[in-house]
């Protein structure tokens, strides 16, 4: 029985004599680990793991897909709700059709009112002060009120009357200063023509 192995033994003895022979052919070692091939598909543990991963992949992918579908559905509902809100709000805004226009117009008018009110309105008070300060015999020939200044040309029978006028004007705290610009005696009428400027605070 063992004799049958002899030719192999013989071959084993002969092989080293052939230097051209390939390494695979020369692999005659009795160690079986040397002849082990690293083929994953032959490994049961790898195949099992790969199959498991594929199964998980096959299950997870539709799961994610259905999750996305549900998410899209939720977003659709949200869009519908927002569109409803938008329509309701738009309808509500039309309840106030002219409010915006009227409000804007009032705001613009208020601005003009404030601008005009910021200006100081002295004219009636200044005119009143001048007319009330005129002593007996003195009359206004010419009068101009602009801003806080009044320019006057008075006709007076004498300089004292004009002095009295100036005193009367200055009694009013409202008046700041009175400047005499000129004083001329009109010989034909025997009357003084006095040009004054009154400045108010």
């Amino acid at each position: 029985m063992l004799e049958k192995l002899l030719p192999i033994q013989k071959n084993l003895n002969e092989q080293p004599q052939n230097p051209d022979s390939s390494p695979e052919e020369s692999n005659t070692s009795p160690n079986l680990l040397e002849s082990f091939k690293d083929d994953f598909f032959e490994s049961y543990s790898f195949v099992n793991k790969a199959t498991l991963i594929l199964k998980l992949f096959i299950l997870i992918l539709p799961g994610v897909f259905f999750f996305m579908l549900a998410l899209n559905d939720a977003l659709d509902r949200k869009i519908m709700a927002l569109e409803d809100d938008k329509n309701v709000l738009t309808d509500e805004l039309f309840v106030y059709p002219d409010v915006q226009a009227i409000h804007t117009s009032v705001v613009l008018r208020e601005q003009i009112l404030k601008q005009v009110n910021e200006k100081e309105h002295y004219a009636p008070a200044m005119l009143d002060s001048i007319i009330k300060s005129l002593p007996e015999g003195v009359s206004i020939k010419n009068e101009m009120v602009q801003g806080k200044t009044a320019s006057l040309i008075l006709l007076s029978p004498g300089p004292l009357n004009v002095a009295s006028f100036i005193t009367n004007v200055l009694k009013d705290d409202f008046a700041q200063e009175v400047s005499i610009l000129s004083a001329n005696l009109v010989m034909t009428q025997n009357i003084y023509e006095i040009e004054l400027v009154v400045r108010y605070r």
Binding site: V116, K119, P124, I140, M144
Partner: peptide, 19 residues
């Protein structure tokens, strides 16, 4: 004064009086 207090918003710019 009456002109300043009309129903219209008014701003008196200048007043002149001449005999």
């Amino acid at each position: 004064f009456a002109l300043e207090n009309t129903s219209r918003l008014s701003d008196i710019l200048e007043v002149k009086a001449e005999d």
